[in-house]
Amino acid sequence: MQISNMLGLDWLRQNAFVAVFGMAVPTIIFLLFVGYPILYTVYLSFFSWNGADGAKTFIGLQNYTDMWNDSYVWTALKNNFRWLVVTLIFPVVAGYSIAYVLRARLVPFPALVRTVIFFPVTMSLIAVGLMFLLILNPMFGALNVALESLGLGFLIREWFGDHRIAIYTLAFVSGWAFTGMPMIFYFAGLGDVPKETLDAARLEGAGHFRIATRIALPQLRPVTAVVVMLTIFESMRAFDLVAVMTKGAPFGSTTVLGYQVYLESFWNSRVGYGAAISTLILVLSAGLAALVLSRLMKGAFDG
């Protein structure tokens, strides 16, 4: 065996194109703009730094113990999980149901429905947030007027002014804008489920609910995995809607981890502390993603 071969030089020579453009260039960009920032964030989390001057003080785990005692971080953490639960239920279930009724041709004008529901996916959350500020407004909002005229006035709430429900309002708004995504994914996935399987089930007298949940869904596991992962990432990085709709108000009840990072780093000048919260988000997202990968998607990304 030649030395060059042992070092992998032969492989490199044979695959120069792939090695350079397929591995080296993207890796450099990735390391510079993604890898290094992550590591630097973790590094910063052990320091006290106001972001203004160069004086960073090493304080060990102080930021993390502060975090443990910070009620805002706990609220934010709980809110991220509330957000996750709402977005796992509302847009994913709605998206799948809609995709199914569209594929099963149970609803007229399927193309129109698909367009209408997918459209909000293209809207920035800033725009979505502004729109729902107008619609949910307690003084001139359309929703309360609509509820009133339908005789459902008792349902009227202070949608983003009541600290008990504001976070759910935000999560639902985000779900509204997100539903098109799972719908399209499931719509595509359902198109690949063998027609014979579904027809056979139908002949045996299975109802649509049964087909949708027991027969089609198990075949869509990879799609579900992707959808669930996207949902997790979306809810862990929730920020825009909070920034535009409530800024954490009322009573700090709508803050999320991402918003706390932003506040602490850029408003309270506690960059190191912000980095510690960032690290928490990273660990959470990675942990949840790993969980999903191992449970739902064995081997899907193994190439």
Binding site: Y36, Y40, M236, R237, F239, A289, F301
Partner: peptide, 23 residues
Amino acid sequence: IFALLLTGLMIPQQTVLIPLYDT
């Protein structure tokens, strides 16, 4: 590589603002 790609997918933008700003 897949693990790295997924990291890139999942990373919330707020967490890397300061270092990216520096870069």
